[in-house]
Amino acid sequence: MNDWLLALIELILFVALAPLFSAWVKRVKCWLQNRRAPALLQPYRDLRRLFAKQVLLSHNASPVFRATPYIIAGATLLAAAVVPFISVNLPTAAIADVIVLAGFFALARFFLALAGMDVGTAFGGMGSSREMTISALAEPAMLMAVFTLAMVAHSTNLSTVIDQLLAQGLVLRPSLLFALLSLVLVGIAETGRIPIDNPATHLELTMIHEAMILEYSGRHLALIEWAAQLKLLIYGVLIVNIFFPWGIATSGSPGALAIASGVVFVKLLVLGVLLAVGETVLAKMRLFRVPAFLVLALTLALIGLLSHIILEVG
């Protein structure tokens, strides 16, 4: 029972911290670009304002359009519930393994793309078309990275994977190095960050995610924005906790949990800085450069897989 309580607390932490992580990335980016950064609490204020605002629906909007924000939020919440955040002993992790996690994201994406096509503008269709194309290309790379991980840890259950990697200690594994790089690229593509998509602009020719949600307002928009922030945090936590699992709590004692929270916090701060640096250094790609980017991710994942088979097992 304690475990389930802990799982609930972790989920609440996840939900609560998601906007903060986005704000942190934005802040570091502003520093790097010599701009004045908004307050760290700004995303929370935005969300509160949006939740309070009236919803304006298009005449053409169907029930699918209205249900989509809730389905996206629900699926993303479920995804957050199965990712070990501060403790490895997560009972909810057994509900869904990594592949189901990808399935949750796919479900959210499916409905988001449908909503984009619902109101009958060219923008929405454009965003949906691009989003589905990019995610289709990202999927094999992601799966192959997951396969590599699963072959190293003999499991796809996230808790078990982290447990296994912790037990092996510090091992320099070429397979995990490449799987990490590949997952980073996939994560960037899936969360719509630079150089794939720019969450900060609404320029018609380049936008993907924003094009789909153009017609949303009020609490619907708030839910979608917040789910996007949550998704970014989930990818961040996955990357830091799987590839750098040291510090995560292996027991339920309050001391271990406190340390783990601190360590995860610091790891995420560092990851945020790296992401911001990457986004500052790189420029957004043309749409038809994106396949090359994802082929790179696929190649990295493939080399990770092959190096596991050839070099590590022999």
């Binding site: 009236q54 919803v55 304006l56 629906l57 298009s58 005449h59 053409n60 109101v119 009958g120 503008t121 153009l214 017609e215 609490r219």
Partner: peptide, 9 residues
């Protein structure tokens, strides 16, 4: 929490 209908942008 109110919902209003309008034209698509």
């Amino acid at each position: 929490v109110q919902t209003e209908r309008g034209d698509t942008w």
